[in-house]
């Protein structure tokens, strides 16, 4: 490992030993940008994005999003099965799942609102309240933990100036603890919105935050 002052953080294997670029590892050629809506129904319609800018009152399931929803729906034998993808879609648009959102999704799928609430609260990825532009999820489970995840978490909290679960004053960051993110070989793993940052150590944290704010400034 190098002691270079700027260590490009955020992707596995970034130890200076490999000739793979970040894009190669991340599959950025495939995953770097949002694909246009309405590609094949099996795929591009159904996976969620975590957008930086969200509108909690964005219209749901209208226009192209309605198309996306209908494609999702066509892949399942029951309307209920489209619930998780529909909630994913709603969260992509609105950033979190508010009671109103649950209600709208429920009436769209013909389910009871209480049922949708029960399902939405079961899964941790649905934000039940608004989060910052960047949702920073630090894995503190065992593989990361034995390699110092607690310090990484503490560093994130320190550098964003927030308490666990709270959103920073500028609305940019929410830091939460996450369970295993399935990148145990590259501890500590941090998921920021949809992106994985791997091999993160406490001293990388300022760099990561800087990179995020730079991205935000660049638009």
């Amino acid at each position: 490992m190098s002691d270079a002052p700027f260590r490009n953080p955020g992707w596995a294997g970034n130890t200076g030993e490999f000739d793979l670029s970040e894009d190669d590892v991340r599959g950025a050629a495939y995953a770097g940008e949002r694909p246009p809506e309405g590609r094949h129904p099996s795929t591009s319609a159904s996976y969620p994005f975590m957008l930086v800018e969200r509108d909690p009152y964005a219209p749901l399931f209208e226009g192209r999003h309605k198309e996306r929803y209908e494609k999702i729906r066509s892949r399942y034998p029951t309307a209920m099965a489209a619930l998780l993808p529909a909630l994913n879609l709603a969260q992509e648009l609105r950033g979190h799942i508010s009671p109103e959102t649950m209600d709208e999704v429920a009436s769209l799928l013909g389910l009871s609102s209480a049922y949708v609430r029960g399902v939405a609260t079961f899964y941790t990825m649905y934000n039940k309240r608004p989060v910052g532009r960047f949702l920073i999820q630090v894995c503190t489970n065992i593989s990361c933990n034995i390699c110092g995840a607690d310090e990484v978490l503490a560093a994130f909290l320190e550098h964003t100036g927030t308490e666990l679960g709270d959103t920073s004053d500028d609305g940019n960051f929410t830091v939460v603890e996450a369970e295993c993110l399935a990148a145990c070989g590259f501890p500590t793993c941090v998921q920021i919105n949809e992106r994985y940052f791997e091999d993160v150590s406490a001293r990388d944290v300022p760099n990561i935050l800087k990179r995020l704010t730079d991205e935000l400034a660049a638009g």
């Binding site: 991340r26 599959g27 495939y30 995953a31 694909p35 590609r39 094949h40 099996s42 795929t43 591009s44 996976y47 969620p48 994005f49 975590m50 994913n88 899964y123 990825m125 996450a178 993110l181 399935a182 998921q191 949809e194 992106r195 994985y196």
Partner: peptide, 26 residues
């Protein structure tokens, strides 16, 4: 059934699947 956290992974698989559909493999 993909883990929700696997964003990059899902996209890579989704692109591959689109291609497989296009090639008549699926």
């Amino acid at each position: 059934y993909l883990r929700g956290e696997f964003f990059e992974t899902t996209q890579i698989l989704a692109r591959a699947l689109e291609e497989a559909y296009a090639e008549g493999l699926v």
